[in-house]
C-alpha cells in the first residue's frame, strides 16, 4: 500500500517538474512565451498643487518572442497610494474599479523580426503599438521601452503617458489643479519562460 503511494508520489513529482518546464528551457525558448503575474506598474502625476504617486505589483503580462506581441493586464484595485483617502477616491470616483476592474494593453513590437533576432545578444530599445483599455475606453497608443534577456528571464521596461481625459475620467473643477493633464506611467516586468503545457494554444 505504502509502495503504491510512494510510486504515485514519484509520478506526481515528475509531472510537476514537467509542468514547471524545469530543465527544458530550450523547449520553452522554442515555444517563445514569457509570462509574469507579479509585474510592477507605477504612475506619477505632477502638478502645482501636489504630486501623486501610486504603485501596483500585481501586473500580469505575457510576451511572445516569436511574434513580438505583448499583453499586460493591471488589476486597478491593487494600486497603493501614500494617502488612503486618495486611494479610495481613485477607485470610487475616477477609475470606478468596481465597474472596470482591469486596465489592459495588447500590442505589437514594431520592427519585431529584427529586434527579436538581436535580442539574445543584447538588450533592445523598442516601440510597441497597440490598444490601451481602461475605464471602459480603448485608445491606440505607442509604448517605448527596452527588452532584455537576463538569466533566462525576459526583462521588460516600458514607459508612456496617459491623459485621464482621453479615457473619460472626469475630474471635478475643484481638484482639477491637483491632477496632471498627462500622467506618466512606468511598467517593469520580469517574465519567466512558459513551457507549452502551461499555456493552452489557440
Amino acid at each position: 500500500m505504502s509502495k503504491t503511494l510512494l510510486s504515485v508520489g514519484r509520478a506526481g513529482i515528475v509531472l510537476i517538474w514537467t509542468l514547471l518546464g524545469l530543465g527544458s528551457s530550450s523547449q520553452a525558448w522554442a515555444q517563445g512565451k514569457y509570462m509574469t503575474r507579479g509585474g510592477h506598474i507605477s504612475f506619477f502625476s505632477a502638478s502645482i498643487m501636489e504630486d501623486i504617486e501610486a504603485r501596483n505589483d500585481k501586473v500580469a503580462a505575457v510576451f511572445d518572442v516569436v511574434t513580438g506581441q505583448i499583453a499586460f493586464s493591471v488589476p486597478v484595485h491593487e494600486f497603493q497610494f501614500k494617502r488612503t483617502l486618495m486611494q479610495e477616491h481613485f477607485n470610487e470616483n475616477y477609475m470606478e474599479s468596481d465597474k472596470y476592474p482591469k486596465a489592459t494593453f495588447t500590442g505589437q513590437v514594431l520592427n519585431a523580426a529584427q529586434v527579436l533576432k538581436q535580442l539574445p545578444a543584447a538588450g533592445q530599445n523598442v516601440e510597441a503599438e497597440g490598444n490601451m483599455t481602461m475605464h471602459g475606453v480603448t485608445h491606440k497608443i505607442i509604448v517605448t521601452g527596452t527588452l532584455q534577456l537576463r538569466d533566462g528571464q525576459l526583462v521588460v521596461f516600458a514607459y508612456f503617458n496617459i491623459a485621464p481625459a482621453d479615457y473619460s475620467i472626469d475630474i471635478p473643477l475643484l481638484v482639477r489643479e491637483h491632477i496632471a493633464k498627462s500622467v506618466s506611467v512606468r511598467v517593469n516586468l520580469t517574465c519567466d519562460a512558459v513551457s507549452p503545457t502551461l499555456v493552452s494554444q489557440p
Binding site: 488589476p75 495588447t106 500590442g107 514594431l110 503599438e129
Partner: peptide, 23 residues
C-alpha cells in the same frame, strides 16, 4: 507593421484571453 499586424490581430486577443485565464 502592416504585414505583422494583419495576422497578429486575433492572436493579440488570444494573448489577453490567456492572461485572463491565468489570472
Amino acid at each position: 507593421v502592416l504585414t505583422w499586424a494583419a495576422p497578429a490581430a486575433h492572436a493579440q486577443a488570444d494573448l489577453l484571453g490567456q492572461l485572463d485565464q491565468e489570472t
